[in-house]
Amino acid sequence: MKVLVAVKRVVDYNVKVRAKADGSDVDLNNVKMAINPFCEIAVEEAVRLKEAGTATEVIAVSIGDKSCQEQIRTALALGADRGIQVETEGGVEPLVVAKLLKGVVDKEQPQLVILGKQSIDGDNNQTGQMLGALANMPQGTFASEVVIDGEKVNVTREVDGGMQTLSLTLPAIVTTDLRLNEPRYASLPNIMKAKKKQLDVYTPEDLGVAVTSHLTQVKVQPPAERQAGIKVADVDQLVDKLKNEAKVIS
């Protein structure tokens, strides 16, 4: 079984991102970039399927300019077998990403596509579901457990108030939530080996996809600040304030 994993290059999760003073965009000058944490979980899950003998090949795909090859190499160092970059200028919208991934799916015919549930830059939480609709594949989003069962995959999902398990007919889409697994660290020998693994570059034209734009970012701004309140001296004063000032407990 072939598994396709999508990875995105994003600002490292430790970086506190700010809006530029003129509000034109976020300030990403000289910030550390990394693989999106949810995508890292996706890579780990695919590699575990290969180690378990379920997957035969793991392909890591990323969409972006040449710099995203760094994140593809990270995925290769974690255990993916080969990489694909779809070359675009700068960021593209989730719908276009989904169309480009659909192009890769058509070429590679994977039985399972694993993606992160959302990227920590745009926080859109869309791409996996959109790919599902475009490729007419079922989806198990926000997955906390993935079990391949013959021609099906059982996905346990984190939903409001609990867990839900679905049975999906392969080929299928899985998007990862935090608790699916704990990604490994790449070892130095594996990082060296990853440099020699195959990495193909496609253009959107190769995949027959037109890069369009449906949204314009008008401006960005910092969130409204909440005013700090007061420090109370002890629990008695806290209870008094909550009862008599805020009136939120009785």
């Binding site: 600002v11 506190k16 991102v17 700010r18 809006a19 976020v26 920590i120 830059d121 745009g122 926080d123 949204l215 314009t216 970012q217 008008v218 401006k219 960005v220 701004q221 910092p222 969130p223």
Partner: peptide, 11 residues
């Protein structure tokens, strides 16, 4: 966006 660090206005 960005975990709530930034509010984007989109058209």
């Amino acid at each position: 966006i960005y975990a709530g660090n930034v509010i984007a206005t989109v058209q």
